[in-house]
Write a protein that binds this DNA or RNA. Structure first.
Lengths: 105, 105
DNA sequence: GTAATATGCAACTAATTGGTTGCATGTCAA
DNA sequence: TTGACATGCAACCAATTAGTTGCATATTAC
């Protein structure tokens, strides 16, 4: 879980996920093409995404194909974000009440 | 948006959000009580959460009260995670197809 | 006023991170 | 086999981050 959050923390990695979302199963080379950094830098980011299980890979000859795995993101949405979201209205009301005037109750 | 992801990347900060979720409007001192680090370290984390708009604060005398703001988390869920989640089944099928055997089609 | 309490600010350190370069390995094509 | 292509590995560097300590400021209680 922590690895997923950390992986999502970097804009470059989120962009890579976006690229895979746009076209799944891309090679490292293809993903490097539009990135303004070295191939090795991109490879490191992809390795991190793979470690976080956000990306699955498969070798095809000398190429490495990358596939988006939406499951961990879904888990975040369901398990962690949902926790707050469920109580969103109540928490907002609580916040508002406390910020606007505590004496009133 | 980036600030929110970065803020959520640290387990200590997620824990602080959990603490605020359990009891909203806590002071810095109260939040420090159960953390195994210095008050200043906690204060820094809270400042980051506040900068990311995940926490709102209010002064009461010499105390500083901290309130959970679930809105940015909700935005992530709706705007960014939803993008992947919506296509979850299709992406999974795609992934499976490509991993299990490409020759079959 | 004075002491205790609650927080703020700043300097410093250690660890992590994001990036680079150079070279090695493995695969495809002629 | 040889050369070109795609990726992997490792060392290194700069910037950021997470934590510390020390001191300053502001509020409450006596």
């Amino acid at each position: 879980m922590d690895a997923v959050f950390k992986a999502l923390a970097d804009p470059t990695r989120r962009r890579l996920l976006d690229r895979l979302f746009a076209g799944n199963g891309q090679t490292l080379g293809a993903l490097c093409a539009e990135a303004r950094m070295s191939r090795q830098a991109v490879a490191k980011h992809l390795a991190l995404l793979e470690a976080a299980n956000l990306v699955a890979t498969q070798r095809r000859g000398r190429e490495k194909l990358h596939f988006l795995n939406p499951v961990p993101i879904n888990e975040i949405a369901e398990r962690w974000i949902g926790k707050y979201e469920r109580h969103r209205v109540r928490a907002l009301a609580d916040l508002k009440k406390n910020l606007e005037g505590k004496s009133d109750g």
